[in-house]
Amino acid sequence: MQGMFVVGGESLIDLVPVAAGADAERVALAGGSPFNCAIALAKLGNDAGFLCPISQDAHGELLLAPLAEAGVSILLGERVAAPTTRAIVTFNEKMQASYIFERGADRAFSREGLLAALPEAVQLYQIGGFCPILAEDAAIWTDVVAAAAGRGAVISIDINVREKLIEDEKGYRSRLSGFLDSAHIIKLSEEDHAWLEPGRSIEDHAADLLRRRHCRLVVVTLGEAGSLAFSRRAKGQAPIYAPPVFGDTVGAGDSLMAGILTWLAEHDALRPAELGELGSEQLHAMLRFGAVVAGINCGRKGCNPPTRAEVDIVLGQ
């Protein structure tokens, strides 16, 4: 089945320091993991749609501009009165980002509005990391996922644990588990793994995920150590692609995810049966493609994923 790649979940404004120190001036940058992934998918040549309310405020305008520039379909066209969700960003010595959140417009949706905005033809539906955080939101997003699956979509999720937003850990874990049960493709970082399954090996955790009803592919990012992938048949790995000049890691995981989904679609593997049968060489090639997408992004400040032409230049070297 062909159709749109739809990413559902949060968009927000990252308030990013321009220098080190708690009192540094901050610049407002468009962000949010699903927002970033939708843009990366479109820039790689996919028909991508973004399912998230956009505020009427000035920060909403800041979000709309890169979506439009990349060619992402904005599926909820009517702007909302709630203020744009904000993330106050700080960086550690490795320029890895951490966040404090003030939520607003990303939650200004209704079940009816989201379901009406979901396209009839959906090739892939990606679940955003904020979706399990609050029970009332998760109930609505669960229905959206079910509707996409009912239209034949492959379901993916980027877990993206945001510990500072989780006030009810037991409830969050239960709701996340429900989304994981729906997903064919599960991506997580080593930080997500350490929070979810402290003391366990990544291999054991991946094996558990692959035993869930629908899961056929697990991807784990390891920061500077690259990435791992597990299908029901094999394991693969790939190093990072280090750009000539380093910017920061904002949006790296989102770019990698978009690269993986693009590679799978282009190799006719974005179907449950094919996902589960991927061999180690295919998994390596998939991760390598994703690593180049992520690495080019890391050569810039903020999330600015590459075009397909930029990726092909690096892969051809």
Rank of each mutant, 00 (worst) to 15 (best):
M1F: 04
Q2I: 04
L12T: 02
L12G: 02
I13W: 03
D14L: 07
G21E: 13
A28N: 08
A30I: 04
I39W: 09
K43Y: 11
K43C: 09
K43M: 15
L44T: 09
L44K: 12
D47N: 12
F50H: 11
A58Q: 08
H59G: 08
G60K: 08
E61H: 09
E61C: 06
L62P: 07
L62F: 10
L63K: 10
L63T: 13
A65R: 14
P66W: 13
P66S: 11
L67N: 14
A68F: 09
A70I: 09
V72M: 14
G77N: 14
R79C: 13
V80W: 11
A81D: 15
P83M: 15
T85F: 14
R86A: 10
R86I: 14
T90Q: 14
N92I: 13
E102P: 07
E102R: 13
R107F: 12
F109R: 06
R111S: 15
E112M: 14
L118N: 09
P119A: 14
E120D: 13
E120Q: 15
E120T: 15
I127A: 10
I127N: 12
G128L: 05
G129L: 15
C131P: 06
I133K: 00
D137M: 06
A139S: 13
T142F: 11
T142L: 12
D143Y: 06
A147F: 10
A147V: 06
G150S: 13
R151L: 07
I157C: 06
D158F: 02
N160K: 03
N160Q: 05
I166W: 00
I166S: 00
I166C: 00
K170E: 15
Y172T: 00
Y172N: 01
Y172F: 05
R173C: 02
R173V: 03
R173K: 07
F179G: 01
D181T: 00
D181R: 03
S182I: 01
S182K: 01
S182A: 12
L188C: 06
S189T: 05
E191C: 04
A194K: 05
S201M: 04
S201G: 08
S201T: 15
H205K: 09
A206I: 01
A207Q: 09
L217H: 11
V219G: 06
L222T: 12
L228T: 07
F230P: 03
F230A: 03
R232I: 08
A234Q: 05
I240H: 05
F246R: 04
G247F: 07
L256E: 02
M257I: 02
I260Q: 00
I260D: 00
L261S: 01
T262F: 02
L264P: 01
H267K: 03
D268H: 04
A269Y: 00
L270A: 01
L270G: 02
R271M: 04
P272R: 00
A273K: 04
G276K: 02
E277R: 02
L278A: 00
H284G: 04
A285N: 05
A285H: 05
V292M: 06
C303E: 10
P305E: 11
P306H: 12
T307V: 09
E310T: 14
V311R: 11
V314T: 09
L315D: 12
